[in-house]
Design a binder for these strands. Structure first.
Length: 704
RNA sequence: GGACGAUUAGCUCAGUUGGCUAGAGCGUCUCACUUACACUGAGAAGGUCGCAGGUUCGAGUCCUGCAUCGUCCACCA
């Protein structure tokens, strides 16, 4: 048999993918029943607002490895693909697109905007599907779901109704994280904190003095608070003091609250419930003592009419002007101002603009720590119980601690967004949409309840949720909570969390830095198998993997090596008959035994999710044992130089050698297949072996 | 303020119940275009496994302390 000396991935890969698709074996229903238990992974649906990046290639590879491995082990494997409309994320991407076109979403009628984003999303979705195939994803396309599919939305609404009935959803007037750029509220996980230096001013409030950064919110003060144990101020508690506000004199009440730290500043705080979450909580605790909150900053981050002459100014400008004016009036002591005061500022995780806490009256919240009417455990507690009871296992284990710690501090979840793109909240006249994570938090059961009949019963709970650790709180936590709440069972048994792909300088990859590796470009150059190996070898769960072109090239070379070793074996099979009994030497037997030992080790690594070790082991075996040693040792047996070359003994030696090579080659290809599916399949198709299957994809994994 | 992780070859990283003569990719040097493969082969250089103690017959691997880097959570008016 003649094969070219270099493996041509480009030619082979599309052909092989078609072969797999045609075989029907992506669909678990088409697989022979060799194992009672199915094996299910619900694919984290990529955001349909761009092309796949290297991080997607990583998750595709990891999940495909698990799926292919389990399929070869005989499980009926379901890998359910999907695409995410990705509400806020896509809205942001689309906003940028509009900006480039000189348009603005706030000037486009809602219906038209929605339609445009839908078209944009569906186009991206199509591109992504093609890209997933390029990477070798052996997922069941017949069950593909989109987060805006009607029957998915139906499930989401059912859960929402259930939560309402259980008293776990409420619509409230509450302080929210408001992004003045995106014009929407955000949940607590969608804000990040950054250390900033700002001036800390010391101002006079009548007889008292207090320290504040946010001078501009003073027009919204409804009280002054001190610690109840602070003896310095005990005579003021419960009394009103007269203060000068720049807009005239005003009376304000002094209250006592534990939240005030007597050590900080003067031990006195101004209370602005409309613009500070801590102050909001103070107000809640003293709701009968102090007046309603007064909003002084509007949705665009500008001061409103309550700020008198400062109306229309942005926060920063107003702050400086107010400081000046107060200093002039002797209400602020500039000598005391701490210019380099370090504190954390809340920012929008997308645009980095400062979050303005703001009270909105039509916000939907999910209670995280309250018991449902129909059950005993809160969303939070049921999830914690499942994790502590090992119903869900984290890989790596240490992230379980991170998860539990986060769960401890949970506050109610704001699920309303003031954007156009997403699933509308039913019964909300203001036209808000759900936080995407509210619907994608239901993804494992929503998908299975809306595909083939009986899928939910067959495949739920799923086996593994594999995703990036950066969305542990955004997504994994919500899936666990909502999954248990809606179905009574944890949605998956294992959570495998991979890291963020970085470049050789350990930098995040981003378009603006120009250090991105386009996975499809790499596939084009070096083949999907090479990229997959480069993404897996040495990549431990929970840690950020590093990828660079040389590494990919290294595994492209490995693909060539596999190719040529196979070529060698196939070229030396003259006279070989798979059905004739072979006499193996003691050394041959030992060689096979060594292989089995290696295969056993690799199997163990696979079972324990250590793909980064398994891949290296099979790599090492194939190249440095099979090629470097075994093949070299067989050469004299395959073409003996002595005149006795045609003797019966020499023929037997040759036959044994051929058997040894073809056996070890085909067995090695099986072990390599989950990692490098294309090249192994292509070679398998040409092997003259006994009991050959339609494809390597459904061969039997090493058993012993 | 809490918690976690990392520190191993020039670079990027593996090394999971303690037995390692410490591995991989890339890079460096020498030789070989030998009929599977130059996207190769043979060989070599390069590591006191962050520092200091401890446990052990034996520690990169376990314990204690320290240093440096990184990450996450909380949040300070």
């Amino acid at each position: 048999m003649e094969l070219p000396t270099a493996y041509n991935a480009k030619e082979v890969e599309d052909k092989i993918y078609q072969l797999w698709e045609k075989s029907g074996f992506f669909n678990p229903d088409k697989l022979p029943l060799r194992h009672k238990k199915p094996f299910t992974i619900i694919m984290p649906p990529p955001n349909a607002n761009g092309s796949l990046h290297i991080g997607h290639a990583l998750f595709v590879t990891l999940e495909d490895i698990m799926i292919r491995y389990q399929r070869m082990k005989g499980r009926k494997t379901l890998w359910l693909p999907g695409a995410d409309h990705a509400g806020f994320e896509t809205q942001v991407v689309f906003d940028k697109k509009l900006e480039k076109e000189g348009r603005n979403r706030f000037q486009i009628p809602k219906d038209q905007l929605y339609k445009e984003i839908l078209e944009f999303t569906l186009a991206n979705k199509k591109v992504m599907e093609h890209q997933l195939k390029k990477l070798g994803a052996s997922c069941d396309w017949s069950r593909e779901k989109f987060t805006l599919d009607e029957n998915i939305i139906k499930v989401v609404y059912e859960t929402f109704e259930k939560l309402k009935k259980d008293g776990l959803v409420y619509k409230g007037k509450k302080i929210v994280n408001w992004c003045t750029k995106h014009q929407t509220s955000l949940s607590d996980v969608e804000i990040k904190y950054e250390e900033r230096n700002d001036p800390l001013y010391f101002i006079k409030y009548g007889p008292l003095e207090l320290a504040t950064v946010r001078l501009e919110t003073k027009f919204g003060d409804t009280a002054v608070a001190v610690n109840p144990k602070d003896k310095r101020y005990k005579d003021y508690i419960g009394k009103e003091i007269e203060i000068e506000t720049l807009l005239g004199k005003n009376k304000i009440k002094v209250i006592a609250d534990e939240a005030v730290d007597p050590e900080f500043g003067t031990g006195v705080v101004k209370v602005t419930p409309a613009h500070d979450p801590v102050d909001f909580e103070i107000w809640q605790r003293h709701i009968n003592e102090i007046p309603e909150p007064k909003q002084v900053i509007d949705k665009y981050g500008k001061l409103n009419e309550l700020a008198g002459p400062y109306q229309g100014m942005k926060v920063k400008e107003a702050r400086e002007k107010i400081a000046e004016a107060m200093a002039q009036k002797g209400l602020l002591d500039p000598a005391k101002t701490q210019l380099d005061y370090k504190h954390n500022v809340a920012l929008c995780y997308k645009c980095g603009n400062i979050i303005e806490p703001m009270i909105l009256d039509n916000q939907w919240f999910v209670k995280m720590t309250a018991k449902p009417k129909s059950g005993k455990l809160s969303l939070r507690d049921s999830a914690v119980k499942a994790v502590k009871g090992k119903k869900i296992v984290f890989i790596p284990k240490r992230l379980e601690k991170v998860f539990l710690h986060w769960m401890k501090n949970l506050r109610d979840w704001n699920i309303s967004r003031q954007i156009t793109w997403g699933i509308p909240i039913p019964g909300d006249p203001s036209g808000q949409v759900f936080d995407t994570w509210f619907s994608s938090g239901q993804w494992p059961f929503a998908t299975l309840k809306s595909t083939e009949k009986g899928d939910f019963e067959k495949f739920y709970p799923t086996d593994v949720m594999e995703t990036g650790w950066d969305i542990l709180f955004f997504w994994v936590a919500r899936m666990i909570m909502l999954g248990i709440y809606a179905t009574g069972e944890a949605p998956f048994k294992y959570v495998y969390l991979h890291g963020l792909v970085r470049d050789k300088e350990r930098q995040k990859m981003s378009k603006s830095k120009g250090n991105v590796i386009d996975p499809l470009g790499v596939v084009d150059l070096y083949g999907a198998d090479a990229l997959r190996m480069a993404l897996i070898v040495g990549n431990t769960p929970g840690n950020d993997p590093v990828i660079y072109e040389e590494k990919i090239k290294g595994y492209r070379n490995f693909a060539t090596k596999i190719w040529n070793a196979s070529r060698f074996v196939l070229m030396n099979l003259d006279g070989y008959n798979a059905n004739i009994k072979i006499q193996l030497s003691a050394k041959d037997k030992k060689t096979i035994k060594d292989f089995q030992k290696t295969a056993k080790e690799i199997t163990k690594e696979m079972d324990e999710f250590r793909f980064y070790v398994a891949s290296e082991k099979i790599y090492h075996y194939f190249w440095h044992t099979f090629c470097d040693k075994i093949i070299e040792e067989q050469k004299p047996r395959l073409y003996p130089l002595s005149p006795s070359g045609s003797s019966g003994r020499a023929k037997k030696e040759k036959a044994a050698s051929q058997y040894l090579l073809i056996t070890l080659l085909s067995e090695s290809l099986k072990l390599l297949h989950p990692f490098m599916p294309f090249i192994t399949e292509e070679i398998y198709q040409q092997l003259p072996i006994k009991n050959k299957r339609d494809c390597l994809m459904v061969e039997t994994w090493f058993e012993k």
